[in-house]
Amino acid sequence: MLDNLVEVKNLKKYFNTPSGVLHAVDDVSFEIPRGKTLGIVGESGCGKSTLGRVSMRLLDSTSGTIIFDGKDITDASGADLKALRCEMQMIFQDPYASLDPRMEVGELIGEPLKVHKVCASKDEYNSTIKSLMDTVGLAERFLHSFPHELDGGRRQRIGIARALALKPQYIVCDEPVSALDVSIQAQILNLMQDIQKERKLTYMFITHDLSVVKHISDEICVMYLGQIVEKSPTKELFANPTHPYSVALLSAIPIPKVNIERNRIILKGEITSPINPKPGCRFAKRCLYATERCFAESPELREISKGHFVACHNI
């Protein structure tokens, strides 16, 4: 099974809180083929960021298996884990908060190189930084600038350069463009696609923005309260959304066109608490089609057409 770079099986991540056990990620399985992009969409609090972090071992899982490049890395530690970090990197959401304000651009990009001692000489170190800046489209004159002197788009380019520094195979992108204006967002998305093609990277792309995820992903998982409710190739999901939550989510996006006919489904209520969830489908409370069975029994992900999985009793 070497064509899947990342495989996650029955992954769970629970947090103990004073009011009970918070099921942030609950029994999630997926695989990402080498060189492809898996999009994870869902609303705030559905566990998408936790899933990204657990999948690259920034957080320890409660149970489940993570297989990376054919090796089980669920319990890797010490030197093994440090070596793994060169293979997997992360791009963070907020380019304002994720960069040390007291480091220059060059130092920021060079930091991972120093930590992992990958450069043999000072010259190699300097030229690697310069070539990384070139890759992400940062002019050399910014080498000694501080993050506060740059705008959001450029800061996010630093974040991308840092993630690329160790030549990883797998990058978790956690809302990398959400904090940016649309004209800059488009520049960054194009850059990320170019780099992916060039370096054959595998992305997990976490976002709440469905139009962005549609643009960049090969396959999409829709998450609701810690669980995957629908998993499908991108085209199929948008042509044929099946889970009632995915349908409502798609219909809720405002489309920048006037005078179009829309069948909007307005969901009642809001996402419920992931602390000590009750048995049954987690979406049942807000679902238009919920039956008694939905409140009693948790639905399983079932394949309804090739590669298209849905967790719903009524499908």
Binding site: A186, N190, L210, S211, H215, I255
Partner: peptide, 13 residues
């Protein structure tokens, strides 16, 4: 803007 109802391979920023 990435479009939901059209397929575009590359955005034009």
């Amino acid at each position: 803007i990435p479009k939901l109802d059209e397929d575009v391979d590359r955005l034009t920023p």
